[in-house]
Design a protein around this nucleic acid. Structure first.
Length: 269
DNA sequence: ATGTTGACCTGTAAGC
DNA sequence: TGCTTACAGGTCAACA
């Protein structure tokens, strides 16, 4: 499920249970995720979790001896439960705290990952990432400048982590709808002004989704508490064939880079 | 260099 | 009911 808002909501949800807590034990039940879970993650045992940060869709559990990095892939979920709660199917990794809580990484498809980052280093996977969309690092003219000379579709372009992070398939569809841009249009042929609009749309859509997800945070530690499945009204994604919210014409659904793409042929140019 | 496709893995829903 | 197929929120590696 996780796009950037889901990951951020997960971060906010687990922080009260993990920040400044001492790690009691790390258990790996399934080492084979996207990459083998590095043995070094056990080094956080006995360490205080100093902070829980997010970079792109990666969550960083920072300690003095190094940082455990979690990625949720397509189907990953985090849950905080009392230690001893029976394992669920696809619970692959557990981080226990001295206070008696257990962070569980559950991921049916195992596209998620656990990485290790030594103090003072930047993991190679994080090294070449584009700017965070919700910060000033995402400059006004960033998309425009990066896109010159590119013929790839603009939707593919904004989903590229080297361009800007955190724009997954759902929010790519939504932000292009919101800014009235045809997802198939070559990235290099879009004007500066239209990119400014797209940038605003990306920020608006992501920020709103985080707000919406925040409402579920109180229940985070409960076994049945889903860490944020957004009820925001999606205007485009998943709405193929239904009338366009703006002009009533049926929304088109196509594949772009093997990903489902929904847009209005009339409103998006 | 850039753009496109396959690969990783499981679950679910639809079609026959 | 059972079997087969397509698709699902990500993203890296390998191609042309």
């Amino acid at each position: 499920m996780p796009e950037l808002p889901e990951v951020e909501v997960s971060r906010l949800g687990i922080t009260p249970y993990l920040e400044h807590q001492i790690v009691r034990k790390v258990n790996v039940f399934q080492r084979q995720l996207r990459w083998p879970v590095p043995l070094e993650v056990a080094r956080i045992e006995g360490q205080e979790i100093l902070s829980i940060e997010r970079r792109a869709k990666y969550l960083l559990l920072v300690t003095e001896v190094g940082t455990a990095i979690l990625h949720l892939g397509m189907s990953g979920k985090l849950r905080v439960l009392p230690i001893g709660t029976p394992l669920a199917k696809h619970d692959h990794v557990e981080i226990q705290t001295l206070a008696g809580q257990s962070l569980r990484l559950n991921d049916a498809r195992r596209f998620g990952a656990v990485l290790w980052q030594a103090p003072g280093e930047t993991h190679p996977m994080l090294a070449k990432l584009g700017p965070e969309p919700l910060t000033d690092a995402f400059a006004n003219d960033h998309l425009y400048r990066m896109s010159r000379g590119k013929s790839a579709p603009v939707k593919t372009f904004i989903m590229d982590n080297h361009v800007v992070v955190g724009v997954g398939n759902i929010y790519a569809n939504e932000s292009l709808f919101m800014s009235g841009i045809d997802p198939r249009k070559p990235a290099g042929k879009i004007s500066k002004a239209r990119y400014a609009k797209l940038q605003q749309a990306i920020r608006t859509v992501l920020a709103r989704a985080i707000e919406q997800g925040g409402t579920t945070l109180r229940d985070f530690s409960r076994a049945d508490g889903q860490p944020g499945y957004f009820r925001i009204e999606l205007q485009a994604y998943g709405q193929g064939g239904k009338p366009c919210p703006l002009c009533e014409k049926p929304l088109k659904e196509i594949r772009l880079g093997q990903r489902s793409t929904v847009f209005c042929n009339q409103c998006q140019r």
